[in-house]
Computed example of a mutant assay.
Amino acid sequence: MGKFLTAGIIQRETIVKVPQLPIQYSRVTRCYDTIFGGIGGDAYNVANALKWLGDDVTLVSNIGERDSHLFQTKHLDPRYVFASLEQTPSAVIFYDSERKLQTFEDIKDMEEVPYDMARFAEALAEADLVILSNTKFCEPFLAPVKESGKKLVVNFNGLDRENELDQKFLTVADIIYVSDDEIKSDPYEAMRIMSEEYSMECGILGMGKAGLLMYTRADNMVVPYPAVHIKEVVNTVGAGNALLSCFLHYYHKNGNYHEAIKYALMFAAYKIGYVGTSKGFMTEDEMKLWYDLIWNRYK
């Protein structure tokens, strides 16, 4: 069992399935079983998946002052989630059958309200590995994490290498995850440039139904992995967070990047067959079965 700290935004989410993106204008569109609401956000989604896999997870975030009840019935530890914002961040996410996403995000006063660094130090002391989102909220955590010597994972939600904030996260990250939606150049070239300019041990570039690319410094090469098909695709929202969570769980468990990414691809493939942050997670026993069926047949 790993001990993880994950920090970032927790938000109220409305997920809407649409026929296609961009959305065609219509004053009223009546649809059935296509609009879903719940709690999400990168930090919450990662914590939720890690907890499901049996890990000890500390979630660090701020939420709205009227929403302290959000974690009263949840299985996640609420000790380091503080109701210090005027409102909880919110997002509306549209997706279509081609796996395209369009997100409208309102983070409220998340970037203006500082987190109690003394409490962060307490949370950090309990963790073996730290996962941060590339947000202004998480920027103050970079220095203490690096000083602690603990491995730092950055879950990029949008990446601009010319952006000063993103540069700070790229410079200190041990492991990075980013979607190709945020990459303007050829994926292989983007991975090559990042591996040369930054000191990361491992980089994962998610490419949706095309699979992913993974760079490891130990091998000094970029390896493509095909996507895995387990269930019919229902909703791809949160697939990247699920993949990263499972990857970190197995990497922490066995220290093997390449084996961990195979489990992660299966975990994400199963997740996209369901709608909702808390639905669609496989157990370790289920993943072992699928691992034998999918990967061991190539031996």
Rank of each mutant, 00 (worst) to 15 (best):
M1P: 04
F4I: 04
F4G: 10
F4W: 14
F4N: 11
T6S: 15
T6A: 15
T6G: 10
E13A: 10
T14D: 06
V16Y: 13
Q20C: 03
Y25Q: 09
Y25T: 12
S26C: 13
C31R: 12
D33K: 10
I35D: 11
F36S: 10
G38S: 05
G38I: 07
V46S: 09
W52E: 03
W52P: 00
S61N: 07
E65C: 04
R66W: 00
S68D: 11
S68V: 01
F71M: 12
F71Q: 03
T73V: 00
T73G: 00
L76I: 02
Y80W: 10
L85I: 02
P89V: 07
S90W: 12
I93P: 05
I93L: 15
I93C: 06
E98F: 01
T103A: 15
T103E: 07
E105V: 15
I107Y: 00
I107H: 03
K108N: 03
D109E: 05
M110E: 07
E111Q: 14
E112R: 09
E112W: 05
V113K: 11
V113I: 07
D116M: 02
A118Y: 09
A118C: 00
R119E: 10
A121K: 14
A125N: 12
E126K: 13
A127Y: 10
D128N: 14
L132V: 12
L132W: 12
C138Y: 06
G149E: 07
K150T: 02
K151P: 02
L152N: 05
V153L: 10
V154K: 01
F156Y: 06
N157L: 11
L165N: 09
D166T: 00
Q167H: 09
V172S: 11
I175D: 05
V178I: 11
S179P: 02
D180W: 07
D180Y: 11
S185C: 04
P187F: 08
Y188R: 14
A190G: 00
M194K: 05
E201L: 00
G203W: 04
G206A: 12
M207E: 04
G208Y: 01
A210L: 03
G211W: 10
Y215Q: 06
D219C: 03
D219T: 00
N220P: 02
P224E: 07
Y225P: 00
P226T: 07
A227H: 07
H229I: 08
T236G: 10
G238N: 12
A239I: 04
A239D: 03
A239F: 08
N241F: 02
L244Y: 13
S245K: 15
L248G: 11
Y251G: 08
H252I: 13
K253P: 00
G255P: 02
H258E: 12
H258C: 08
E259P: 03
A260E: 13
K262T: 13
Y263H: 13
G273A: 15
V275Q: 14
V275F: 11
G276Y: 08
T277F: 06
S278A: 14
K279N: 12
K279T: 01
F281S: 06
E286R: 07
E286T: 04
M287Q: 09
W290R: 14
D292C: 02
L293K: 07
I294M: 03
